[in-house]
């Protein structure tokens, strides 16, 4: 009996602390807002962070994108060929990548590669008193340190997602035409007749913009909120990856449901 009550109490505590954390994250975002404008006026800092986050994630995005495209082509072909519909392979691959896999996988990769690094960097700056030092030099770390990283993450994710989808489609084309013997013209024409710019490509772009915002937000918040110890930073890094992944998948479900219903 008491075991059941304890379990429920523990659950309640977790929910309450989860909501509390969300509240802290929102407050942090509100505090960050004025800094976002200030940082935008100093584009140099954003470019520097774009290099650290975007360019360094590019390699893993290129490789993953190519492999995902090639796997989709192989698997899709094996299924479609049963219905003699292999001419639709290009369409299948393009829709899967542009609508779903491109934005989602890119965001997950970004959270693991760059999001965790952002958290660790900000957390370590806190642990080594660099942020305190800035405050004492009358420099507000929010616009100077946090905002450029937030912007860079937000900008990088949609760009990376587009690159992922494009590379994936090229990878699928190479497998489909080079290995499976499909006709290249059919591959592209089926794709073009079925992929809509306003629905599918824009939808994917919107998703990746939302994911970029959320992942960057979580990463900088966890870093800024980390306990200034090595253990605190490592916990914060883990939390960034876990919460970002859950947020990406949950938001993806919600957005997909809305987009498919044409809202």
């Amino acid at each position: 009996m008491s075991w059941g009550a304890d379990t429920i109490r523990a659950l309640g505590r977790r929910v309450i602390s989860g909501i509390g954390r969300l509240g802290h994250a929102v407050l942090f975002l509100v505090r960050l807002m004025p800094g976002l404008g200030v940082a935008l006026a100093r584009g140099r800092l954003i470019i520097q962070q774009l290099y650290m986050t975007g360019v360094l994630t590019l390699v893993i995005v290129l490789v993953s994108g190519a492999f995902v495209g090639m796997i989709l082509a192989l698997q899709g072909y094996n299924t479609l060929v049963r219905y003699d519909a292999q001419s639709s392979l290009g369409l299948l691959v393009a829709l899967s990548l542009v609508r779903e896999l491109g934005p989602v996988l890119t965001a997950l990769l970004f959270a693991g590669r760059a999001g965790s690094a952002l958290t660790a960097e900000i957390g370590l700056m806190k642990a080594t008193e660099q942020l305190d030092g800035m405050e004492m030099m009358a420099v507000d770390p929010l616009p100077r340190v946090v905002a450029p990283r937030f912007w860079a993450g937000w900008i990088a994710v949609p760009l990376l997602a587009m690159i992922f989808s494009a590379v994936g489609i090229i990878g699928a084309y190479i497998v489909a035409v080079g290995d499976l013997g499909l006709d290249g013209g059919v591959f592209w024409s089926q794709m073009q007749s079925g992929v809509s710019i306003s629905n599918d490509i824009m939808g994917g772009l919107i998703k990746s913009v939302v994911f970029g915002f959320v992942v960057s937000w979580i990463a900088v918040f966890e870093g800024y909120d980390a306990k200034p110890t090595s253990e605190g930073v490592s916990r914060a890094t883990t939390r960034t990856v876990v919460s970002s992944s859950l947020a990406i998948l949950g938001l993806d479900f919600i957005m997909t449901a809305f987009m498919l219903r044409g809202l």
Binding site: I47, M162, S165, A166, Q192, D200
Partner: peptide, 30 residues
């Protein structure tokens, strides 16, 4: 060189978007 790399990265992203719009999507539907 950092600026150059970032510039190339942004261009690659925009090119990918252009490819998706022109080659994958049906620009004629517009």
């Amino acid at each position: 060189s950092m600026e150059l790399t970032v510039g190339l990265f942004v261009m690659a992203g925009l090119l990918a978007l252009a490819m998706l719009a022109l080659k994958v999507g049906n620009i004629h539907a517009l």
